Computed example of a mutant assay.
Amino acid sequence: MKANLVSILIPFKNTAPYLRECLDSILAQSYPSWEVIAVNDHSTDESLQIVQENAKQDARIKVFENSGAGVIHALQTAYAKSSGTFITRMDSDDIMTPDRLQIMTNSLLEHGPGHVAVGQVTYFSHRGISDGYDRYEKWLNRLTAKGSNFSEIYKECVIPSPCWMVHRTDFDACDGFNPHRYPEDYDLTFRFYEAGLNIIPCDKTLLYWRDYDHRTSRTSEHYAQNYFLDIKLHYFLKLDYDPKRTLVVWGAGFKGKKIAKSLIEQHIEFTWICDNPKKIGKKIYGKTLLPFQELDKIGASQSIVTVANEMAQEEIRGYFKKLGLKHMTDYFFFC
């Protein structure tokens, strides 16, 4: 294993229009000690030829075929072929800034094992960025600037899949890409959190994140909302749930119903509350929806909040504060 070598793992499938720009951004890195482990996930366009052409010109680029099918198998294949001290991922349709690898390796060398190096991101698209992606980018970058990403981990994926780096030893301790659970980037983020890794703050954009209609996260069923909710609930019950306290679910929209149904299926008792007068008193899945003021009577509790409206969330935060309850201990925002 070469000292301080960075292994850049790149699964790719039918991204020919973007691959050259992606690889050029890696070739332009100020940090020279890297290897690209590119894994072809059964492309039917010119993607494989493009990577092979680059591999002929630079021996640091290595190309393999996916031993299975899908991005998780491709990542597993890539990791098995890698030999770097540091591990990072890159998506084949994105662009690194020239100093991304240098900044991340410097951060990890300075802070040592037990840390995750991250960077700020900028979305770009030929048609402009939607309001939703713009809000997500700003929210994510605010967290990254402080290194406080894990404080909002149950809301959304707080570490962008193509913009992190860790020590290989930490990656192995987190079980790498072994779990076959989608969305795979969100699952890995939770395992970083579970392992107690610390996020190193970063105030610089290190990745340009491309958005387009047929991007995998837009088209694959594995990135549908229900998969995100399943992962949130799985890790909440594993890492933060206290069965000695009353579990409360706040909200009866799509997310609230999905969480409630899953808890019922797992035979986990909970109280279901909301602030919608039209729903209070109704039964869903055999559970009666109670007014949110029930929290005053419950005592020791933990709340999963599934209310998405930002103004309503602020009011809910104020209500919890009034009750003396703490975020990420007594209540958790799932959206």
Rank of each mutant, 00 (worst) to 15 (best):
K146S: 11
I50Q: 10
K2E: 07
K279E: 10
E269M: 04
P162A: 11
A224F: 14
L108E: 04
I280S: 04
D93K: 03
L289P: 04
C22A: 00
R218L: 04
F320P: 00
D213H: 14
N66Y: 02
N141P: 07
H267A: 12
D99K: 01
S130P: 04
A308L: 08
K297S: 09
D94Y: 05
S125Q: 04
C335M: 15
Y285A: 10
L48N: 11
W34V: 03
L247C: 00
V63H: 07
L27I: 02
D211A: 05
R317M: 08
V39Q: 08
G119E: 06
K204I: 12
A117Y: 01
H234R: 09
S43W: 01
F171L: 09
A252Y: 07
I87P: 04
I72Y: 00
Y235L: 02
D45C: 03
T85G: 01
R215E: 13
Q49D: 11
F236P: 01
M1A: 12
D172H: 05
N54K: 14
T122L: 12
I103S: 12
F86N: 06
Q102C: 11
C157Q: 14
M328R: 02
P179R: 05
R245S: 07
W34C: 04
F333W: 06
I61L: 06
K138Y: 06
H267N: 14
I37R: 07
G253K: 02
W250Q: 06
N226E: 15
R317A: 11
S303M: 07
M328T: 09
